[in-house]
């Protein structure tokens, strides 16, 4: 498997879009930290990058890459390789490349300007989100045969996680304003890796605000070691579940 991963990574890292993405992240992060006089505001800008741009690029790029590699995948399938190996290699190749781009683009500025627990948390979450959205993209790509449709599905998925899901949560919160829904909200947030990621970062960042009112309920859960551990496990599930399903699909897929 390692052999294939190596070449996939080499291929992706030379990709121009990938280079542009790395450069874009870097310019953005440096300008955010450089222009803002206080680094907390810089972190806020970085939070938006991690929660919006990283998933978008990760999911769209991965989907397109999988479609563009259709013939290459065929070639690999005709070789003495297990299908699972091929799919995993593709996943690891994409993940390693996305993570590398993120670490270089956003990691370095954070290490320079904000090398504390909040910064580290952001990097960790950014890495996890990159990988999660590679897994989700591969699921979208394996499920739809048509490339245009597949990319559409990928963008819709991103929109869903970044915006629509929260809209839905907002709706629920207003419908059930008279009920104690805080605990249920914790459960619901598990269904969106972006929400989970955001809350985990915020607990490191905006401690004062989240401590107030219901914030305390969230803090009591996510702030504890158990809650933190559980959140990480859920994020990992968000990697392995789509990956597992897509591998299963790929094994029996006609190319």
């Amino acid at each position: 498997m390692k052999k294939v991963i190596k070449y996939v990574v080499i291929d992706i890292l030379r990709n121009r879009i990938m280079m542009a993405y790395t450069l874009f992240l870097m310019v953005l992060s440096f300008s955010i930290f450089g222009l803002e006089d206080n680094s907390a505001k810089g972190l806020l800008g970085l939070l938006n990058i991690i929660l919006i741009i990283v998933p978008l690029v990760s999911i769209v790029f991965s989907t397109i890459y999988v479609y563009n590699s259709a013939e290459f995948i065929e070639l690999l399938v005709s070789q003495p390789l297990k299908r699972k190996t091929i799919w995993m290699s593709l996943f690891f190749g994409l993940s390693i490349s996305m993570v590398l781009a993120f670490l270089i683009g956003a990691g370095i500025p954070v290490f320079i300007y904000q090398a504390d627990i909040t910064g580290m948390m952001m990097i960790l979450i950014g890495v996890l989100l990159s990988v999660i959205f590679v897994a989700v993209a591969m699921l979208a790509a394996v499920k739809t045969r048509d490339k245009a449709k597949g990319i559409g599905v990928a963008i819709l998925l991103w929109l869903y996680f970044a915006l629509l899901f929260d809209g839905f949560v907002l709706f629920i919160l207003f419908q059930f304003a008279d009920y104690p829904v805080e605990k249920a909200m914790i459960a619901i947030s598990m269904f969106n890796p972006l929400d989970l990621a955001r809350i985990m970062i915020l607990l490191k960042m905006d401690v004062s605000a989240l401590m107030g009112y219901t914030g305390a309920v969230f803090k009591d859960f996510f702030g504890t070691e158990l809650g933190m551990g559980l959140s990480f496990v859920v994020l990992l599930i968000w990697i392995f579940l789509p990956l597992g399903i897509s591998t299963k699909r790929f094994k029996s897929k006609d190319l």
């Binding site: 070449y7 080499i10 291929d11 992706i12 563009n68 590699s69 290459f72 070639l75 005709s78």
Partner: peptide, 10 residues
């Protein structure tokens, strides 16, 4: 294969 396509940047 009929059409051989390989990763662009290899």
């Amino acid at each position: 294969p009929q059409i051989g396509r390989y990763p662009d940047n290899m």
